[in-house]
Write a protein that binds this DNA or RNA. Structure first.
Lengths: 227, 227
DNA sequence: GTTGATATTAATAAATTGTAAACAACATAA
DNA sequence: TTATGTTGTTTACAATTTATTAATATCAAC
C-alpha cells in the first residue's frame, strides 16, 4: 500500500448529527477514512485509539469544547503535528484568534459548503506531504523521491534517472495500467519524441534490477506495476 | 544570527495602498520583515529577489491576478514550499476552491481584522519545521552558520564562502537530493547566471577538503550530502 | 503459420559530470 | 604602489554514464 493511496484518516467531532453526516459523507466520497465523535471526550478517546491524520472540531460541544480538546491533544505524544481544524458558527474575531493560538491550524466558520471544506482539508494535506516528503512503500520495495533512492528488501538499488522516473510513475498507482502514451507524456514530456522501443528498453532495465515480476505487460495497452 | 533575530520575510501584494499599509504595519509590529508589491508582476519580481517565507496575494490586481502569480511561483525552483495566502473580497465558494487548488495554503476574505490575519500568519509559520539553531551537527561534521566555521573531527576546515553556503545547503537536509537548479537558486540567487560547470567545481573543492564520500552525485538529477 | 505486438541485445549517440588549468576580480600585506 | 594570495568563474577536454536506436528474436492470438 502506498503513501499516496493509503487513505488518510479524519476524525470529526460535532454534537449535531446532521453536520457529522454531511461532512463525513463528503469526505468519504473523496476517499478519506472518516470516524466521528459526538462530543469532546469521545473525540479525545477516538483520537488516541485511531491516531487520525486530521481532526475537525466543533468549538461548542457538550462536555469539552473543541478548544479544550485541542489543548489536551496537543500535549499528548503523537499529536504535536496532527492537523486540527476548528469548524464553528462562532464568527467573532477574538474566538477565531483564540482558536488559532490554541494550536489550531485553521478556523472555518459555518455554514460552509462541503466542497470548500474538502478543498481546505486537501490543502492542509498537500502541505504535510511536501514537508515530510513522500516515500512510496509497496511490499518490500520503497521509493524515496526526495532522496532518489530505491530499496528492495533493504538493499539499495541503483536506477538511472529515466528508470527511476518510470518506476516511480508506475508504482505511484500499483495495478493501474499506464498506457504507453501516458508514460511517454509523463516521463519524457510532451515535446520530446522518441522511438517506439525506448520504453521497452527502460522497462527491461528495471526488470533486470528489480526482478521480472514487478512490471507486467498488458499487451496492446501498456504496463502496470505489481509487487 | 540567532533564531530570535532571524526575521521571517513576508511579501504582500495588493493594488490598494491602504490595505498594503495597514497589513504591513501590523506584521512589522509583530517582528516580521515585510516587503510590498502593487501588482502581480512586481510581486513575482520581488519574490524572486527576496525569497520571502510567506506571500499574501490579493486576487484581483492589475496585470497578473493573485492566482496567476501563485501559479507562476509554484513552478519556480525554491517556491514549492513557500506559504501562499490569498486575501480577497471575493467570497464565493468556487473562487475559494480555485484558490486553494491553485496551490494556495489559505484563502482569507476581506474585510479582515489585522489581528486575525496575524493569527493566521502565525499559525502557518508554526507548522514550518523549526530550525535547530545555527549549528548543524552531522556525525563528525559540524557547521556553524553563524560563525562560518566547519569542523570535521574537531579539526577546523577552511571553506570559502560559496563552498560554505553550498555545503550548508546540502547538509541542511542530509540525503535529500538537491537539483542543480535548486542549488543555483539558493546559493547563487535567481538573477545571477553562471556557467554549467561552476557547481561541479565547487563540489570538487568541498570534496577535496572533506573527503570524496561526503557528497554523492546523482547523475541527471543533482547532489546530496551524506556522512 | 501469419500477424502484430513486445523482448532482448548490442551498438551508437547523447548527455552529464570530473578535472585541470587559466583568468579576472578583489583583498591584503609588504 | 606593487606583489601576493584567495576566490569565484570559465574553458576545454576527458571520462563516464545514460538514453536511444536498430536489428533480431520471441511470443500470443487468431
Amino acid at each position: 500500500m502506498t503513501q499516496e493511496t493509503k487513505a488518510r484518516t479524519i476524525l470529526i467531532a460535532d454534537d449535531e448529527p446532521d453536520i457529522l453526516e454531511i461532512i463525513s459523507f463528503n469526505l468519504q466520497a473523496q476517499g478519506y477514512n472518516v470516524i466521528t465523535a459526538n462530543n469532546g471526550n469521545e473525540a479525545i478517546e477516538l483520537a488516541k485509539t485511531h491516531k487520525p491524520d486530521l481532526i475537525i472540531l466543533d468549538v461548542m460541544m457538550p462536555g469539552k469544547s473543541g478548544f479544550e480538546v485541542c489543548k489536551v491533544l496537543r500535549v499528548l505524544p503523537g499529536f504535536e503535528n496532527t492537523i486540527i481544524l476548528f469548524l464553528t458558527a462562532l464568527n467573532d474575531d477574538s474566538t477565531q484568534i483564540k482558536g488559532l493560538e490554541t494550536g489550531g491550524d485553521d478556523y472555518i466558520t459555518k455554514p460552509i459548503s462541503p466542497k470548500v471544506l474538502i478543498s481546505r482539508v486537501n490543502a492542509h494535506f498537500r502541505r504535510i506531504i511536501k514537508e515530510t516528503g513522500s516515500i512510496l512503500q509497496i511490499g518490500d520495495l520503497s521509493i524515496d523521491r526526495e532522496k532518489y533512492v530505491v530499496t528492495l528488501k533493504d538493499e539499495e538499488i541503483i536506477l538511472a534517472r529515466k528508470e527511476f522516473e518510470l518506476l516511480a510513475l508506475l508504482a505511484s498507482k500499483p495495478a493501474k495500467v499506464f498506457l504507453r502514451n501516458e508514460i511517454l507524456h509523463k516521463v519524457w514530456g510532451s515535446e520530446v519524441i522518441v522511438g517506439d522501443r525506448t520504453i521497452d528498453v527502460h522497462i527491461r532495465k528495471i526488470r533486470q534490477k528489480l526482478g521480472d515480476d514487478c512490471i507486467t505487460t498488458v499487451k496492446g495497452v501498456g504496463y502496470k506495476f505489481q509487487m
